[in-house]
Amino acid sequence: MKITKLVVHCSDSPNNLDISAKDIHLWHLERGWSGIGYHKVIKRDGTIENGRPEYWVGAHVKGHNSHSLGVCLIGRDQFTDAQLDSLKKVVIDWHIKYPDAEVVGHCDLDSGKACPSFDVAKWVKANQ
């Protein structure tokens, strides 16, 4: 599988609710999926949790799952400094493995989505 996109998502849950990868796994099972659709989840305190293994095609952005990895920030539109620091770590780690992959927001691939509620391209430029 050739990874060409690293997709940033948000859980669209209340900003004060600290849910986990396990919670999302259960939600996605309830939707009839084969488990959590994201490869990484970043909790409110910056903890990075594993979701699907990277070799397993994700279920996080329709039409792009076969060539992307997905990371999900817990919250709706206010992310903590710890989360953004951890997001930078995840992106750096993935870029080492997939140097040609573009970092994008879910909304950049699906205009019907607001997720992750910030301009990912602008964030990437500020964090290079």
Rank of each mutant, 00 (worst) to 15 (best):
V104E: 00
V41Y: 06
G32F: 05
V57R: 00
E54S: 10
H60G: 10
G112W: 04
L84A: 09
L29Y: 01
W123I: 07
D85Y: 00
V7Q: 09
K22Y: 14
H67R: 13
S13R: 14
T80L: 01
T47M: 04
E49F: 00
Q83S: 02
N16V: 12
R52E: 06
I19H: 11
I36D: 02
P14G: 10
S86H: 02
V61F: 04
F79Y: 03
P99A: 02
N16E: 15
L84Y: 08
P116G: 09
R52L: 13
G63D: 03
G32W: 07
D108L: 08
K97D: 14
H9M: 08
D18M: 07
G35S: 05
N15S: 04
P99L: 03
R52S: 05
H9G: 04
T80V: 04
K62E: 14
H39K: 01
K22V: 14
S11G: 09
Q83F: 01
L6E: 06
L84T: 05
W56V: 15
K2F: 06
I92E: 15
L87T: 01
G51V: 03
D45S: 05
S66G: 08
G51E: 06
P116A: 02
N127S: 05
K88W: 00
V90M: 07
K62L: 14
W27N: 12
L73K: 05
L84R: 11
D77A: 02
H95S: 11
K5P: 05
H28E: 15
K40V: 03
V8N: 04
A82N: 10
W27K: 15
V91G: 06
V103P: 08
G46K: 07
K89S: 14
D108V: 03
V61H: 11
V90D: 05
D23V: 13
G32D: 03
K43F: 05
D45C: 06
S11T: 10
V120M: 06
G112T: 07
H9K: 09
A21T: 06
L6H: 00
T47W: 01
G32L: 04
S13L: 12
V120W: 01
G63L: 04
K62M: 15
V90W: 01
G58R: 03
Y98A: 02
I92K: 14
I3N: 08
S13C: 14
W123K: 01
D100H: 12
D81E: 13
P99I: 09
H67V: 13
T47Q: 09
C107H: 14
S13K: 12
A21V: 07
K88T: 12
Y98F: 13
T47S: 08
N127W: 00
C10D: 14
I48Y: 06
V104I: 07
V90S: 08
A59M: 13
C10T: 09
C115N: 13
H25R: 13
A21W: 05
Q78D: 13
I92R: 11
W123G: 09
L6G: 06
R76V: 07
D45G: 02
I92H: 11
I92Q: 15
L6N: 07
L69N: 04
L73M: 06
K125F: 00
E54K: 11
A121S: 15
T4G: 11
C10H: 02
H64Y: 15
H9R: 00
T47N: 10
N50K: 14
K2I: 11
E102L: 08
D81M: 11
N50M: 11
Q78N: 15
D12H: 12
G63Q: 07
